[in-house]
């Protein structure tokens, strides 16, 4: 589904990604973990071409994103993205946030889009918030709307960029529940996260990144319980001891 080949990315003199090779199979849930500054968010943003890569290739469903001839907007419609800070549209109600892109970009009929949006709101448990503006929602509710908004484009892949990092602790659970449901339904997901619980519970594979490289990857049980690499060991000992 996603194929990343030898991707390099620098911001000025700082090389953030130093040759990443990375694959995601259909219906697979991959969790990317690692210390801040390790390049995991940048990798995710490259997969959605919010950042241009300097070198290397990225394919989604066989189409090469890094080819200048590719219609990047068409591909982005198939790749949902959920941001750490939600990025809901503050001038639109919850429902309008969800229907904006399907109606204006895909040309879906307004009534049909509304119906689909209500269905998605039911799924994330926010039907009663359909007509309120984002500033009336809690962080957890905002993030669930953001997930519904991404799903409204019926993407083949969902990318999550630290979806629970900006949330109060008591809000994390409700977002994780939605994500777990999605994983169970067979959505292909790449999740950059600090939630080791999520990685362990729904992750098919865990990727550990450090200093712009993938240090190791494997089954969650393998990585969490018995990481072969000392860098992974040291990172996990710091994170899991809290």
């Amino acid at each position: 589904m996603i194929k990343v080949v030898d991707v390099h990315k620098s911001f000025g003199k700082l090389e953030v990604l130093k040759g990443i090779n990375f694959n995601v199979a259909p219906r697979e849930v991959v969790c990317v973990i690692g210390p801040s500054g390790s390049g995991k968010s940048t990798l995710l943003r490259c997969i959605n071409q919010l950042e241009r890569v300097d070198r290397g290739h990225i394919y989604i469903d066989g189409e090469e994103l890094t080819d200048p001839k590719t219609d990047i907007n068409a591909i982005r419609q198939q790749v949902g993205m959920v941001f750490q800070l939600f990025n809901l549209f503050p001038h639109k109600t919850t429902l309008e946030n969800i229907t904006l892109a399907p109606v204006k970009i895909k040309g879906v009929d307004k009534d049909q889009a509304d119906e689909q949006a209500m269905e998605l709101l039911r799924k994330v448990g926010l039907v009663d918030k359909a007509h309120v503006y984002p500033n009336k929602l809690s962080g957890g509710q905002k993030q669930r709307v953001a997930i519904a908004r991404a799903l409204a484009m019926q993407p083949k892949v969902m990318l999550f960029d630290e979806p629970t990092s900006a949330l109060d602790p008591e809000m994390v659970g409700e977002v994780l529940t939605v994500m777990k449901d999605l994983a169970t339904e067979g959505m292909t997901m790449v999740v950059v996260t600090h939630e080791m619980g999520l990685a362990r519970e729904v992750g098919d594979r865990v990727v550990f990144m450090d200093e712009g490289q993938i240090v190791e990857e494997g089954l969650p049980s393998q990585i969490f319980d018995n990481p072969p690499n000392p860098r992974t060991q040291s990172f996990l000992s710091k994170v899991l001891s809290i």
Binding site: N73, A74, M81, F83, N87, F89
Partner: peptide, 14 residues
């Protein structure tokens, strides 16, 4: 906020 542009682009808007 530049996240607004990113969110819009990530939904497939040009």
């Amino acid at each position: 906020d530049k996240g607004q542009m990113e969110a819009a682009r990530s939904l497939g808007m040009n």
